[in-house]
Nucleic acid binder design. Structure first.
Lengths: 193, 193
DNA sequence: AAATGGCGTTGACATTTGTCACGCTTTTTG
DNA sequence: CAAAAAGCGTGACAAATGTCAACGCCATTT
């Protein structure tokens, strides 16, 4: 499974074989069954986690008890709670596997050590953070400027792989609309084809 | 005006007097009159920009010609288009001064040099990016989980200084609701006091 | 002092979206 | 395999929000 990650990482930065060996030695593989949680609210997120197979979602409960999907993660994505990780404070979020999944993880200690030791890891980490920020900005624009239907179509188009991997009611919760509304949008849309 | 920035920066990281002198030498001050733009869509954002006085907004037009406020900036905030800056690509956003304002700016060249030369600047920049990401995540949660009224109240409470500095119709555009809806929320709310 | 224009408000009405209830199908689980 | 649960769709209705038009206020300009 590490091979998947190795290939992915080399697309971002150039890493020598020795460095890659260090990164590998510091990593662990973990398997999760369907619905298994990898983060419960209240816990501190202390790992760096790369998804090799399967699918996850990061979600949070609001005061009325409903849950809202902040983000999905599929193969070759990272999943984390940056806020909890950075400040070592109890998370307000949950992360769960939506299917049986495999991840590669590094403890915070080891990952920080890799960042300090291997420049490419530091650079890579920065690029990743920058991209995450840009993605968030685009999503905010979509949320404040688009109708439910537009948000749905944009999501489907921008993240087809995610779209095809997750239940529709979670897509609705990701878009900030009810599952019934999503269902009707789909009906209208297919009828128009 | 640089004193304002100096005080701000020292709250984040420890900087020697020599380093601060370098940061200062690389900076420029710029004044903007009300409604003046500092970024037009199509231009590339090539500076790092700290607001010492006044107020800005970052906004974008959607296909139907309406504008949507992505972010505000007031005193002691930064304002930028990270996506344009990072990839040196034409911006899809506009940034304008909402009042007469003063900013401290560094050219991209000089700022990158400072980041490489002075570790504290690099660290500071990373912290800033991390915070921006966390803030975005919180806003996304608010947008997908709150009603118009809840979004309004949360914004008012979380960013009172911004709230008191900008026109209401821009707050509406920031929250993704119409200005009429915002107006009615306010009426309902004051009546309840 | 009058004219102007931006800003916020309001009423009437249309549209969108949410809620509740239900049923059908697929998937999961024991 | 069978029972249970999850997933998805749909109708009827309610609530939230948007749209359009008009108005008043107030700061600024002329």
């Amino acid at each position: 499974m590490f091979d998947v990650f190795e290939k992915y990482l080399r697309q971002w930065v150039s890493v020598s074989d020795e460095e890659m060996a260090l990164i590998r030695a510091a990593s662990m593989e973990r398997k999760l069954r369907k619905w298994q949680s990898i983060l419960h609210e209240g816990e501190v997120w202390k790992i760096t986690c790369f998804i090799t197979t399967g699918c996850f979602r990061l979600y949070r409960f609001s005061a009325d008890g409903t849950d809202h999907t902040l983000r999905f993660g599929v193969e070759n994505w990272w999943i984390s709670d940056q806020e909890s990780y950075n400040h070592e404070k109890p998370s307000e979020y949950n992360i769960e596997a939506l299917t049986a999944s495999t991840v590669i993880i590094w403890t915070k200690e080891k990952w920080e050590e890799l960042r300090e030791t291997i420049p490419a890891v530091k650079i890579f980490n920065e690029k990743l953070l920058a991209r995450g920020y840009e993605t968030s900005q685009q999503r905010i624009f979509s949320l404040i400027s688009n109708s439910a239907e537009e948000k749905y179509l944009e999501f489907q188009k921008t993240y087809p792989k995610v779209f095809n991997s997750v239940p529709l009611h979670m897509v609705a919760s990701y878009l900030g609309i009810s599952r019934e509304t999503l269902s009707r949008i789909r009906k209208d849309f297919t009828r128009r084809d």
